[in-house]
Design a protein around this nucleic acid. Structure first.
Lengths: 335, 335
DNA sequence: AGCCGTTGTGAGAGCGCTCTCACGCAAGGA
DNA sequence: TCCTTGCGTGAGAGCGCTCTCACAACGGCT
């Protein structure tokens, strides 16, 4: 017992007094093994502490074994936003009954893009789910070069190759939010948008514009946010300074909405009496405020599951179509 | 071009007119290759779209290539709690300059324990970081059997083998929180605890008890929570019913504290004037309430980084000691 | 001229596994 | 009795790669 080499199937076979082939059959649950042989092998495995070498296995049975989830966001956001937790959860859930493993690639666009790209190019993985892609982060080009099956969560903003994606109907969500504020009697309605380099930001704003224009209301009270609480606070402050007469705000995420609401209250405005508020996401943050947020549903878990489903189909070589999930208003007490 | 077999190093070598060994040298940046040969191989790689087979490589150069992060929590919590995002972020950050990949294993203790255990046993991974282990979920035994290097985030509650871990000084945190409430003049101080099967829950409560007892105050107003907003709401409601005279509450997490605060306000209590509140975590949730929470710092990112560091050391065969990080009060407006 | 070291290269073994193929053997049918 | 089955098994090839070892070629020495 000098060279502390981990036991191989060969060792197991020797100890059990069978051939490597039979030992392999036991490990892989092949039914064509006599019970006594099976027991001997099982015992040998236990005694030796044998663990199959995955590399050797996958060298032979060439089949996909992992899916990468790419999260391309600055630290701060991943930290705070339950969106990502839900995403991972959904992917993991759908993958549970497949042999595929979920490999997480996280990083800031600027700092880690090169490393991520290198990893993807190296072919360590068999499919990619991109969560929250931004316009122009160079990722799309790199991805389409790798020819890896890829699904985006959130419509990718790209001129180039068409990627499969799953998204919620953000534009309709924006309309729903604006409609509620208008029907409530608000006339000076502002919006805090998401990042303007993401489809979620652009589309929610567009929906809000649709409805505002249809109602003949001004659409000039627009402040960009970045989906973080701090961004919500700042945007609300700017909004109050520029449009002190506002009586309704559509905030493109609950996290920002909660922060914006705190800012409103700090400025002495009552919610919803002075200013009505509609958020977006209907996540945990919505129920943590007082009153709870009126907000637009964002089926995060479902998107994750659907995206994974699409990816699995893509990996089987099937054609897929983008999916856009419906949304609806979730009642709270802020509008 | 019939059998669409991915190109191998052999193909590259043939195309470049060199041997497999030379091609391999080029791929692995071995300096001992003539410039002309290097160019030929590089060109062949590009033309053929060659990607090295990772399995074949790691079959030969036996070195660790992945680390599993085990998250053992019900859906609901992972969804909402920024703790997990921070955790993943920290691990990913520390791993960034190593060749190790982070593999995520998520699942509910009851439903997915078997699958996780199987995965770990299968030896797909070279180290494990366990995030938020509960007492008696059988994980510890399974883990110690696999003999895989393992680090816990949060002190594991186990009688058996000693695991390496990183934790924040939860007990001291509980003391800090109680002390603040006492110094503020509160006399009827309650607490909403974390899960009683987790060290974080037990230790924070113990710290609160230390300080309360030292101050000669009653320690009977204790309601268990589960770190979720809903748990915070329910516990606060029970607390108000059982101890309507309370004037201070230590809530063992910000998420619960924010919910508890909403519940207090709904019951007509002003925070902090009628009831003072101290949370735990100092995460994003703390700054989202009005007023922002006074809370005890929980260095999530740092714990993740430290835990990963310990794991790397363990994987190199070094001895490691548990690490307990200090904490402190973060000022807000609730106590 | 003869020897050495250096440099670039190729042949080939072998990593641990799966899987095909062939074979021994027992049971059943002719 | 002989011939089929079919089951359990073992021998052995081969997956794509790395790495050792041997060797050719070429200076620069004595």
């Amino acid at each position: 017992m000098s060279a502390r080499r981990p036991p191989t199937l060969e060792d197991v076979a020797a100890r059990a007094g069978v051939s490597r082939a039979t030992a392999s059959r036991v490990v892989n649950d092949d039914p064509r093994v006599r019970e006594s042989a099976r027991e001997a092998v099982t015992a040998a495995i236990a005694e030796l502490g044998y663990r199959p070498n995955r590399a050797a296995r996958s060298l032979v049975v060439r089949e996909p074994d992992s899916v990468a989830v790419l999260v391309h966001e600055p630290d701060q956001r991943i930290f705070a936003d339950p969106f990502f937790g839900g995403m991972l959860r959904g992917v993991s859930q759908r993958l549970a009954d497949t042999p595929l493993q979920m490999v997480l690639l996280m990083g800031e666009p600027a700092r880690d893009a090169a490393r991520m790209e290198r990893y993807l190019r190296a072919g360590h993985t068999d499919g990619v789910i991109v969560v929250s892609a931004h316009r122009g982060d160079g990722l799309m080009a790199a991805l389409s070069e790798t020819r890896l099956p890829t699904v985006f969560v959130g419509r990718p903003l790209t001129e180039g190759p068409a990627f499969a994606y799953v998204d919620v109907d953000n534009r309709e969500g924006g309309r729903i939010a604006a409609r509620r504020l208008i029907e409530r009697g608000c006339r000076r309605i502002a919006t805090i948008t998401g990042p303007t380099d993401m489809a979620a930001g652009i589309d929610r704003l567009a929906g809000w514009r649709d409805e505002m224009t249809a109602a003949g209301l001004a659409t000039d009270a627009v402040e960009p946010g970045d989906f973080t609480p701090q961004g919500g606070t700042d945007a609300m402050r700017r909004l109050l300074a520029a449009h002190p007469d506002l009586d309704g705000v559509f905030v493109a995420s609950d996290l920002m909405a909660a922060a914006a609401m705190a800012e409103l209250q700090a400025a002495g405005r009552r919610v919803p009496d002075d200013v009505a508020l509609v958020g977006f996401d209907a996540g945990a943050a919505a129920s943590m405020t007082r009153p709870p947020l009126t907000t637009v549903a964002n089926p995060v878990l479902e998107m994750a599951v659907r995206a994974t489903e699409l990816l699995l189909r893509l990996m089987r070589g099937e054609e897929v179509q983008p999916e856009v999930l419906p949304t609806r208003l979730v009642e709270g007490g802020t509008a």
